[in-house]
Design a protein around this nucleic acid. Structure first.
Lengths: 114, 114
DNA sequence: CGAAGTGTATGATTCTCATCGAACACCAGG
DNA sequence: CCTGGTGTTCGATGAGAATCATACACTTCG
């Protein structure tokens, strides 16, 4: 009977970085990619811990997707948690916004004025 | 006897792009480079039209420097004007900030306290 | 005019990064 | 236990970016 806190296992454990320790240049280059921008936007649209990595509609394979999440974690933009077989995500809104005020808003903002 | 408005000549004329027509991704990748960040920072420290392209203390050659300015122009970050033999620069603070509020501030902000 | 200074254009080189395919590890369910 | 689903890792590939050295165009000044 599986524990309700789930994940009794010992797995790789995703490497996170606190937004406070992220250089500006890293944050900018993390967001300067169309695929990652789309990930952030979709992630912002749903509640925390409701989206698994594979649930995003992006035009890349699994390997590339995994890479993008690594970049996002290293930039302090997303947090990941293992939930059973899946790895679920959370956008670190408050923390990231405290470190880089307004930056997330620019990316989440609806595209092209005209 | 040189005209006081200077530049009687017919030269290449630098290609500019209005910040309103710049995609977010372009702005971010333009600022996601250490050399260009330094250029923006130095440029912000002095008055408009007082800095020529060669007056920046960056660890790259002339060709690469010229390339970086091309990128900055295409991102709507700087404006250039020919003044005699030199090409002088101006940071498009207001216009760029109107298009991407807060972004320039993040880059100009003093680097991580610790 | 000739020389020196400033910036651009071109071509080649190097590096980084995004991507894929395949192999592997882990979890859940029959 | 075996199978299908999820995600990571590895190696290789390709595209794009940054850089340099050289050559060129234009300006200014002697």
């Amino acid at each position: 009977m599986p524990d309700q806190t789930a994940s009794s296992g010992h797995r790789a454990a995703p490497v996170h970085r606190d937004p406070d320790q992220v250089p500006v240049e890293t944050a900018l280059s993390a967001l300067a990619d169309p695929v990652r921008i789309q990930l952030i936007r979709e992630l912002a649209g749903d509640a925390d811990w409701t989206r698994s990595c594979g649930s995003f509609d992006v035009p890349v394979g699994k390997a590339a997707l995994s890479h993008h999440f690594t970049v996002l974690r290293a930039a302090g933009l997303v947090e990941q948690r293992d939930q059973g077989a899946k790895r679920v995500n959370r956008l670190r809104r408050a923390e990231f916004d405290a470190r880089f005020p307004g930056l997330l808003a620019l990316v989440l903002r609806p595209e092209h004025p005209a």
